[in-house]
């Protein structure tokens, strides 16, 4: 087993184990902490696969921003958080468990049986992704770049209007 494979297995186990911890935890807050561990594991996977910039972005956005937002929202709904006896699952959960297990099995088999069209051995990997990304935003991907700012504006205004109490 190479070092890379070892790191992959560790990161994957952290990711999946924390994900299981998240969906089975009784308290939403603890679930959110598990979710942060999942995000960290996914960031490690990104870095391992060679997308270092994206790994950092994953930590910045998911752990630094989205997770904190979710934790804040949990803090803002205290009557839900404070009730330890509230059931965590709805009535359909056994059915869902069967279904998602089946989904996982089907996907795994599909992944293993498909012959993926891999890139040629020795194809140059882009380096300095941040620079290339910046250039890409200004040329080919200019539309996503500008649309993103509009999307964020809409999200900001919408969320403020909905969340504020008048």
């Amino acid at each position: 087993m190479t070092a890379e494979q070892f790191v992959f297995v560790v990161a994957a186990l952290i990711t999946l184990g924390s994900a299981v911890g998240m969906v089975t935890s009784r308290s939403v807050f603890v679930g959110a902490l598990w979710m942060i561990a999942v995000f960290g594991g996914v960031a490690a996977l990104f870095i391992l696969v060679g997308a270092g910039f994206l790994g950092i972005v994953q930590i910045l956005i998911y752990i630094g921003a989205i997770a904190v937002l979710i934790l804040f929202a949990i803090m803002l709904t205290p009557r839900v958080m404070g009730d330890p006896n509230a059931p965590r699952y709805n009535r359909q959960w056994p059915l869902v468990a069967v279904m998602t297990t089946g989904l996982a099995a089907v996907l795994t088999v599909l992944v293993l049986r498909t012959d993926w069209p891999l890139a040629q051995e020795g194809t140059p990997v882009i380096t300095g992704f941040a620079v290339e990304l910046g250039k890409g935003f200004m040329t080919t991907y200019i539309l996503p770049f500008e649309v993103a700012s509009v999307l964020l504006l809409v999200a900001l205004i919408g969320a403020i209007v909905i969340a504020r109490e008048e």
Binding site: L33, I36, G52, F53, I56, V57, I59, L60, I63, G64, A65, A67, V68, L71, M75, G128, A130
Partner: peptide
């Protein structure tokens, strides 16, 4: 090569421990 972004990401990660 993304040093500044890395530092920014880290300083926001400390908030989780405080919460």
């Amino acid at each position: 090569d993304v040093g500044v972004l890395y530092l920014v990401a880290l300083s926001s990660a400390t908030e989780v421990a405080i919460l």
